[in-house]
Each structure stands twice: as C-alpha cells, then as structure tokens.
Nucleic acid binder design. Structure first.
Length: 528
RNA sequence: GCGAACGUAGCUCAGUUGGUUAGAGCGUCGGAUUGUGGAUCCGAAGGUCGGUGGUUCGAGCCCACCCGUUCGUACCA
C-alpha cells in the first residue's frame, strides 16, 4: 500500500529553462530595480505596464503555423481562434500601447517599465525561458536634431544606470553604432534591395561574431563559410573577393579606431577629440563612404557623440563601436549596447569578459506598423538577471546575509496566550512607524526547546526569547543573544560547561523586555 | 536545430571483466541533554542506480529509443 503510493507519486519538477527565486534573489533584484527606476525617473520617464500576453501579430512574429505554433515564442489560441503569445520583449508591446493610445499620450512620450518576458528556446546556463527586462523608451521625437538628442539621452541614462548600480566607471561601457553606416556600405557593394535582404542579414551576423571569431573568422563567414572545431560547417554570405575586401577594409579601419580609443581610455584620458573622431570619415573622398546612407549614419553618430561629450560623458563611458550590430530586424538607426568590461572567472577558472547586459536602439518602424506612417522611437533594454549575477560577481549584491526574526520560543504550550502577548509587544515596540522592519515571530512548530533554538539559528535570528514557569512566576524573561552565543561557543569543548554557561543569555524583567531587545539589536548592528 | 559527453541518497562522489543485500563523506532527523542553538559520541531515515524496452541464468554496468544536464555550433526579436 505504502509502496504503491510512493510509486505513483508525482515527481516535483521545475520546467526546464525556468527558475524559482528565493528570498535573497528577490530582495536583491528589488533593490536593483529601485536603483534603476530612480535613474529613469530623474530623466522624466514615467512608468507604464502592459500585460504578458499580446496578439501574436502585434509582436511582429508571423502567425504561428499549425505544425510549430510555438517556435521561439509561447503561443496559444484564444476561443475566438485568434493567436495569443507571451511577450518576448517589452518593446513590441510598448509599440502596440503607444499606437493604440496615440492621441491621448503627450509626445514625445517617455516611459519605462520592468517586466517578465518569455522565449521558447533552448535554455542554457544564465539563459532562461522567463527573464526580466527593464526598458526605457522615448517615442515621437521628430527626426533631426531632436531625435539625435533623444538617442544621446538614452545612452547617458544607460551609463547613469550602471553607476547607480555601483558599477565603477571603467567597469562598463555604453557602445554606440549606427545601422545606416553598414547598410550604406552594403548598398555600395551591391547588396541593396529586397532580393539581398538574406545576404545582408548573414553579413550582419558575421560582423556580430567578431569578438568571438576574430577578424579571420568574420572574413570566412563573409565568403564561402567557416568550419568550426567540432567539424560543423556554417555557410557564409558567399560574397565575392572585392565585396569581402571592401567590408574588411571598413572593419579593419573601424577597429583600429576602436582600439585607439580603448588604449587612450586605458591611459586615463577620457576626452580626446582627435582619437574620438578617427572613426568618422571625411565625405567627398570618392569611396563607398559617400553613400548617402553612410553619411547620414555618420552624421547621426557624430551628433550623439557631440552631445554626450558636451554633457561630460567621456570615451570611458560612451564609445562609438562599429562591431555593435544588435537587433538584426527592427532597428533603423543608432544601436546601443551596455557592456561590462571586467573579467570574471568561468567554471573552468579562466577569466572571461562579462559582456553585454543590455541594449537598444532606434526603431522608427515599429509603432508605424499600427499607424501607417513611421513614428520615431528610441529605447534601451536592460537584462535584469544578467546584471544581477554581474553585481553578485562584483560583490555589490547580496553581500550581507539577511537578519532573521526575533524568535519567541514556546516552552509551555498551555501559556500560548502569554507568548503571543510577548511577541505582539516586541513586534509593536521594535517596529517604529516608517522605520526599518524588525521581524518578530512566535515559534509555531511542535518541537522542544532544543529544536526551537536550532530553528532560530537556521533562520539567522539575532536573538531568542525564552520563558517558562520559573520566569513567569518571577515576572522575568530570558533573552538569548544568538550571535554573541555563537561567537563564544567555540571556546567550550565540554557540552556541560556550554550548557551551564549559556553564553549570550541574560535575564530581564518582563516590563523591560522591549527596551532590552532594542538595545541588544542596536549593539549587534554596531558590532557588525 | 545539429554534434558530442555525462546522468548512482538532499549535495559531492565510489561501485572491479556483467554476479548475492548498491556504499562513503557532508547534510538531515533522533538520542546522550524530560529547559537551551555550537563541539563530541551513539543511532536512524533517506535510492523507481534519469525513464522505457531489449540482450542475458543474472544488468548500476551491455544495446536501442526517450528525458534531463553540460560543452561546441546555429538561432536570439
């Protein structure tokens, strides 16, 4: 019978790619969210919240086909047969919200929101099917100088967020690029037009891999393709020699400029116009750089550069970097990426750069899908979980163990009312209005004294309150300082002595209990 | 998605060429201590050996498929 029950018992199983979050994680991420929120608020952004589900077409995904309705996203069919999907980012839902409420909203509309997003894809270490993003976007700034200013503001705000989270200047960098530059070059080498969209995508993907594969790897991917060490072959863009040469010329030049910037920053110089501008090309040289798109892209980048430098943000915080590709589909202009530059040991102990924790850019077409005309928009999205693990690595998060509750032990079960009164007095007396929370609880389990103290210990309680008939008769209470007791425990090797001495424990009058515990907690805070 | 490796107690792992009842350390719980968290000693619980099917007199070990984890690669709004 018992065996049978056991056999049929369900195994508790967390679905793959999802995580349970425990007290420490939740407190840490709430702290982070509050810090990020303060920065966004300072820039005049206001919160908005949209639901987890959207109509699938609103997310910009093709309608799921019957065979694989959940490719990439989690989708289900409503009872009116319409397809719904869990949102996979916060940008597409924002575009829907803005388009739907366009007439009511002040333009430009600045908003921020934090929320869970879902992706139905292969999970891995640090990669989940549900994770949190924290976005800020400006919608409706007209093109031209105002639009460039909106982009610059997003970059500066991203930098401010990093520092608000305690990430030191130099440990992060906000990188900026412009899709128009690469698009212009690709156009110039004959990759323009609808029929080349696929190849353009392949080229962008190849460039995106530069940090991992190096310049030669990218060259292979632009041409025939590349075979990796596992023998797997990745098909390349199939470009001709001249086309590859042109792209590589641009890349090498751009990376030389980026390397110079890094070297300058490393030497402690954050402002140097000449080095800062080396990436920018002089028009009229007769090269592919004269493509209209390219020039436009460069002008926008130069505009952003000028604004952030004028505002005091140097190359150590915001950099132009031609390898930032990002968002292969909907970005239409400037793109941003927040990178952490410090190294952390991986599981093999090798140092690796932490890398990207967020990104964004200009997406002028996204709101327009609902409105029939382009609506300029620019924004930024932070990966909260990745940032959290980065901060943990820096020791900026979850450093101190949370102090547990004051535990009122129960020795005599016939006097529960008395223990409850003690608990209530402590709870009321230790928790001033608007002050920090001091948790107080009465032990609610069924075990004896020994187990109750073990429980208090495991809860990381600062102290326990003990009272039996002796104490009640005398109008006294025992207060046990668990931290002090723990510290002194090592000095005992006989349990008898340990028990007789009761290190950290003292007796107080019932009427003084709240005051005594308050003083004890203050002493502990002072000592730590 | 493709390729590879791995999967034994809550955790870290041992388990011989296929051979009887699958072990250890740590952790958990109980006792020594009916009113006191540590240390020490004693004891106990805890396993569908990832799952299903097969080969065999006999499978933790061999084979097939599935699930899961990890690594590489692709994708990443």
């Amino acid at each position: 019978m018992a065996e049978k029950t056991k056999r049929n018992r369900l195994t508790p199983r967390l679905p793959r790619g999802f995580v349970d979050r425990e007290a420490g994680d939740i407190r840490a991420s709430e702290e982070m969210l509050a810090a990020i929120r303060r920065v966004y608020e300072r820039y005049g952004f206001e919160p908005v919240e949209t639901p987890f589900f959207e109509y699938t077409e609103a997310l910009g995904k093709f309608l799921p086909d019957q065979d694989r309705p959940n490719e990439g996203v989690f989708s289900l069919q409503d009872d009116d047969e319409a397809w719904l999907s869990l949102r996979y980012d916060l940008t597409a839902p924002l575009a829907r919200y803005v388009a739907e409420n366009y007439e009511r909203l002040p333009k430009p509309y600045r908003s921020y929101r934090a929320g869970w997003v879902f992706r139905n894809e292969k999970p891995g270490p640090g990669r989940f099917r549900q994770f949190m993003q924290f976005d800020a976007d400006t919608v409706g700034t007209p093109p031209g100088p105002a639009g460039v200013a909106a982009d610059a503001e997003i970059c500066m705000m991203a930098a401010d967020v990093m520092e608000a989270l305690g990430i030191a200047r130099g440990d992060y960098v906000i990188k900026v690029n412009n899709r128009k530059v690469l698009d212009g070059i690709m156009e110039a080498i004959g990759l323009g037009g609808e029929e080349n969209a696929g190849r353009r995508l392949t080229v962008l993907r190849a460039i995106d891999k530069l940090d991992r594969l190096g310049i030669e790897g990218v060259r292979e991917l632009l041409g025939e393709g590349r075979k990796d060490e596992s023998g797997d072959f990745t098909k390349g863009a199939g470009l001709g020699t001249d086309q590859v040469a042109t792209l590589m010329e641009f890349l090498e030049r751009a990376f030389k400029a980026a390397a110079d910037v890094n070297a300058t920053v490393a030497s402690g110089v954050a402002f140097n116009n000449e080095i800062d501008q080396a990436y920018f090309l002089q028009p009229g040289t007769g090269s592919f750089y004269d493509s209209d798109l390219c020039v436009e892209g460069h002008n926008e980048l130069e505009g952003i550069r000028g604004l952030v430098r004028a505002a005091g943000y140097g190359m150590d915080r915001i950099q132009i970097d031609p390898s930032v590709v990002r968002g292969l589909e909907y970005y239409t202009g400037p793109v941003f990426e927040a990178q952490l530059t410090f190294e952390v040991p991986n599981e093999k102990g090798e140092p690796v750069v932490f890398g990207s924790v967020g990104g964004g850019g200009r997406y002028d077409g996204l709101v327009g899908r609902f409105r029939g005309e382009d609506t300029p928009a620019t924004g930024f999205s932070l990966g909260v979980s990745r940032l959290a693990s980065a901060l943990k690595n820096l020791g900026k998060l979850g450093a101190g163990e949370e102090t547990g509750p004051v535990v009122v032990t129960v020795m005599d079960k016939s006097r529960l009312a008395d223990y409850q009164k003690i608990t209530a007095d402590l709870r009321a007396g230790l928790n001033a209005e608007g002050g920090p929370v001091v948790p107080v609880e009465m032990y609610l389990g069924g075990s004896g004294m020994k187990a109750q103290l073990k429980y208090a210990d495991r809860r990381n309680a600062p102290c326990a309150v003990i009272a039996g008939s002796d104490e009640f008769d005398a109008g006294k209470v025992q207060v046990k300082d668990l931290l002090e007791g723990k510290r002194r425990a090592a000095a005992f090797d006989s349990h008898e002595d340990y028990k007789d001495e009761r290190p950290g424990q003292f007796e107080v009058a019932r009427g003084d209990l709240v005051e005594e515990v308050r003083a004890l907690l203050a002493r502990q805070r002072g000592a730590s």
